[in-house]
Design a binder for these strands. Sequence first.
DNA 1: TTACTGACATATA
DNA 2: ATATATGCCAGTA
Length: 111
Amino acid sequence: MKPENKNFFERVYEVAKLIPYGRVTSYGAIAKYLGAARSARMVGWAMNSSGKHEDVHAHRVVNKKGLLTGKHHFQGTNLMQQLLESEGIEVIDNQIQNLEKHFWDPATELS
DNA sequence: TTACTGACATATA
DNA sequence: ATATATGCCAGTA
């Protein structure tokens, strides 16, 4: 079955749901996995609508620099950071430390 | 309808 | 290395 049948957004949601505990990924990685490496913005936009998808771990999706750019869109202020820290990820000043260590690439992990 | 914005990334200067 | 410009698609004004 071809996942391509689904809409771009749904695929983004699926990948976001597949992100394992204590791992993070980047918009570009997801976009690339979906075949739209240059549509990273859409990934973030999809996350914006993730409010309808509770299973989507939007807080585990960060930009290529490991910077919590989307934290501003979360409820409070440091909710996203605390969630990541709660998973064992070290986050300082909205930036993930040891990003490579926590990075989770769908194209690699999911093949 | 067109124009602008947006949780990014890559290319070029 | 930093700064500026462009692309991607969808939503909102």
